[in-house]
Computed example of a mutant assay.
Amino acid sequence: MAMTTTMPSTSARTRVRCRAATEPRNARAPPTTRTAPKVPEGAPTVPPQDLPQRPRRNRRSDTVRRAFRETILTPSNFIYPIFVHDEGDENVPIGSMPGQERLSFKNGMIKKVREARAMGVNQVVVFPKTADNLKTPCGKEAFNPMGLAQRSISLLKDTFPDLEVYTDVALDPYNTMGHDGMVRSDGVVMNDETVYYLCQQAVSQARAGADVISPSDMMDGRVGAIRQALDDEGFTNVSIMSYTAKYNSAYYGPFRDALASAPRPGNEDWKIPKDKAEYQMDPANFRECLREAALDEQEGADIMMVKPAGAYLDIIRALRDSTTLPISAYQVSGEYSMLKAASAAGYLNERDAVLESLIAIKRAGADLTLTYYALDAAKWLQEGN
């Protein structure tokens, strides 16, 4: 004969707990030298709430918190952006980015990357500071096989063969007008002509030894064109990390200071857009990032990036939910400088604020984070957080 079991009602369970509570607290516990903790004077004596779920049980100790931690941050998640110059043997401090320098090509760059690798950061992206006399309206220095970017890539790969070297593909560091593409006299940034030069830039970087080509220009069709150009030259194993959702942000100022790459003033004969709103995305837009992501994936991107990171966590999550590709995010110069300034003023604990910001970026869905804090964060993570 089948037996049935009847569960006690909520009120019955409550009564069982109440009866158990009337027994002496340690009536059935083994002897111990532990003493009950003291409560603050004036604390009320109240019966326990009848709560079947108490989430704080899973946060009660450091061991438990670490065991249940959902997002794990490691130095392997970081890409370290480095600024490089060849106008002398000394590093040049960047005033708007305390703690960051333009690294000398022959000495400072290798020393800094060796330091990064010792901290577990084995990915870098190279940004060259182009001398003014090498800049032209069309930015042809971008694909000079002996240009600073190409020499830096080659030296890094010769010195550290297993280093993952990312590049930047855009014309603004090489363009006298400070834009990612060539500018017509009526102020229009030329798309297809720019893409033609970006392909040459990408191939020159691949020849120098780059592992990942990173178009940051936001021209239409550039990912597919670069993929075809790389494949045609035999660089089928070179990846593309597309700046998929790069916003026309106010947070880029210190970066442009570091490379002297801000848009220049125009005149009546040659209009130059004062910002990059014509090709970078409007900060007010969300759906547009999904369109850009669909196009980049279709055109052959291997990694998709959101820039900036901190103010665009919803965009990181949107891309994470819309694709199986890895997602990267750029904690940009303005984010770095704000954290530095607030910490210097004593308003923030720098270590805690930085690690929290990086955890937030990864929690939103980023697999990789480009951050100027890569070395500091790696050190702090090794020390334990």
Rank of each mutant, 00 (worst) to 15 (best):
M3R: 09
T5N: 03
M7L: 11
P8V: 03
P8Q: 04
S11W: 00
R13V: 12
T14V: 03
C18T: 12
A20C: 06
R25P: 02
A27E: 08
P31C: 08
A36Y: 01
P37M: 09
P47V: 05
P48S: 13
P52G: 10
Q53K: 09
R54H: 08
R60Y: 00
R60F: 00
S61D: 12
T63C: 03
R69E: 15
T71F: 03
I72Q: 09
N77L: 09
N77G: 07
F78R: 05
F83I: 14
F83W: 10
H85A: 12
G88S: 07
E90C: 06
I94P: 05
G95K: 14
G95R: 12
Q100I: 15
M109T: 13
I110Q: 02
V113G: 07
R114G: 15
V124C: 03
V124R: 00
V125S: 01
V126T: 09
F127L: 13
P128L: 09
N133R: 07
T136R: 10
P137V: 14
C138H: 04
C138F: 02
P145K: 04
G147S: 08
A149F: 00
Q150K: 13
Q150A: 14
L155E: 13
L155R: 15
L155G: 01
K157Q: 13
D158T: 10
T159L: 03
F160D: 08
D168K: 01
P173H: 09
T176I: 15
M177R: 04
G181V: 07
D186W: 10
G187N: 02
V189F: 03
N191W: 01
C199L: 06
A202V: 13
A206V: 14
M218R: 05
R222D: 07
D231H: 12
D232T: 06
D232F: 01
E233N: 07
G234L: 05
T236F: 00
T236C: 12
N237T: 12
N237Q: 15
V238S: 02
S242G: 06
S249R: 02
Y252S: 11
P254M: 07
R256Y: 11
A258Q: 03
R264I: 01
G266M: 05
N267I: 06
I272L: 05
P273K: 08
D275V: 06
E278L: 08
Y279P: 05
Q280M: 07
P283C: 03
N285P: 00
E288S: 12
C289Q: 01
C289N: 10
L290T: 02
A294R: 11
D296M: 12
D296K: 10
G300P: 01
G300T: 05
A301T: 06
D302M: 01
A311I: 04
Y312W: 09
Y312V: 05
L319A: 08
D321G: 07
D321Y: 00
L325V: 13
A329F: 04
Q331R: 03
V332M: 06
S333F: 11
G334V: 11
A341F: 00
A342K: 02
S343G: 14
S343N: 00
A344E: 15
L348T: 10
N349V: 08
N349H: 13
D352H: 08
S357N: 05
L358Q: 04
A360H: 03
K362M: 13
L368E: 02
L368Q: 08
T369E: 10
L370F: 15
L370P: 04
T371F: 11
A374H: 10
A378H: 07
K379C: 10
L381V: 11
